[in-house]
Nucleic acid binder design. Structure first.
Lengths: 205, 205
DNA sequence: TGTACATCAGTGAACGCGCGTTCACTGATGTAC
DNA sequence: TGTACATCAGTGAACGCGCGTTCACTGATGTAC
């Protein structure tokens, strides 16, 4: 950490990171501007040089989260090749990996009650990460006979929902109520069964 | 509404209901004791005749929610007979129906960040509703060949996760971002595909 | 290289507010005789 | 049925607190000449 004088140098990002750490510990609604400022070593008023207010700081956290998430999903998709199936499974794993590695971002994105439409950058970034999973689903759906093929956006929603549910119910640090299975295994198995149901995996694979 | 004088008559329950309405509108963390008291027509201090404090009022909301939820799930299970399959599907539908019909309860139960273990009544009630789904899963799993049968608690977790995910992502009144499908249809289809993957539904049923 | 000055990024004090909670109180209710 | 009294369920005022935000300010930086 370089010593700092009156000017911070990179306060905006420092505030974002402080906010993320707080959100991770206390949830999006437990987060306060004053505390974020303090933990960045700065007066609360300084926050207003860089953000319009509390909401805007949370929105920046969510925005950065969606960008990381989108990148991660795209890499997972690309690295999951050669088959559409393996690519799709890879994005599913990436979802959970993101939630575990970037819990502050995840919470800012999905648990802050923040409307994605307040901010058009945010809306775009959110659209992109959703888009990756949908593309993966479209590619995959071409392997299903056309007459019994559900809309791709439907089964990408199913995977999204199951992933989100696993994160919220089983991957969150709810102390005491321990998950019966490691969340990664749970999700992997769930997606496997689901894909089998789509006829994309052999019955006894 | 009966006229009331100095004594309310049923303030405790009136406070619970006021709290539920507030939680539904503003989320568990937007809820305040003062506002609940006001909307029950009473001074904030009166709340402390019936509850230890804010947390305790939320816990009562969650408790009542778990009881309703447990009842609903049990009825769904019983009414879903004769087959294990139809009973299981019926509980899946009941999950979403509960979330839609009792959003305040649902939020108090699953989104308040309240630890279920703070209160042993609460822990028991929560255990019961989870138990119903698990029993349905056990009954169902007997129709799967033993050697390829995943643990029942695993696939009840899958269904729970998908249901929760659908509620959070697609059934919540996020204005603007409309769901691509009615949540009920989405969940129904998802569970159908999943059960097919377990070999419990014929491939082209 | 040195100086004058505009711009920028912080400070520190203060604001009004609504929160959860406490306290001594009082009006209403129910019970004993 | 009437009275005395204990118990209960509210009131109303007050508390200390931390919040988000504003404001006039000042120290630091960068640029023009």
């Amino acid at each position: 950490m370089p010593k700092r004088g009156y000017h911070h140098g990179n306060l905006k990002q420092a505030l974002v990171e402080a906010a993320l750490a707080l959100i991770e510990r206390k949830g999006p609604s437990g987060f306060t501007v004053a505390e974020a400022a303090k933990s960045a070593g700065v007066t609360p008023a300084a926050v207003y040089r860089h953000f319009d207010g509390r909401e805007s700081l949370i929105a920046e956290c969510a925005l950065q989260g969606h960008r990381i998430f989108g990148d991660l999903m795209e890499h997972a998709y690309a690295n999951g090749q050669p088959t559409a199936l393996s690519a799709f499974e890879s994005t599913g794993r990436a979802y959970l990996a993101f939630a575990r590695k970037f819990p502050g971002h995840y919470m800012a994105m999905f648990e802050s009650g923040l409307s994605v439409h307040a901010n058009s950058d945010l809306a775009m970034a959110a659209e992109r990460s959703k888009g990756v999973l949908e593309r993966a689903a479209v590619a995959l759906s071409e392997h299903i006979p056309e007459d019994k093929r559900p809309p791709a956006s439907m089964f990408s929603s199913h995977i999204w929902a199951m992933s989100h549910g696993v994160v919220e119910l089983f991957a969150r640090g709810t102390p005491g109520a321990k998950a019966p299975f490691p969340p990664e295994d749970l999700l992997e198995a769930g997606i496997g069964i689901y894909l089998r149901g789509l006829g994309l995996i052999e019955p006894d694979a």
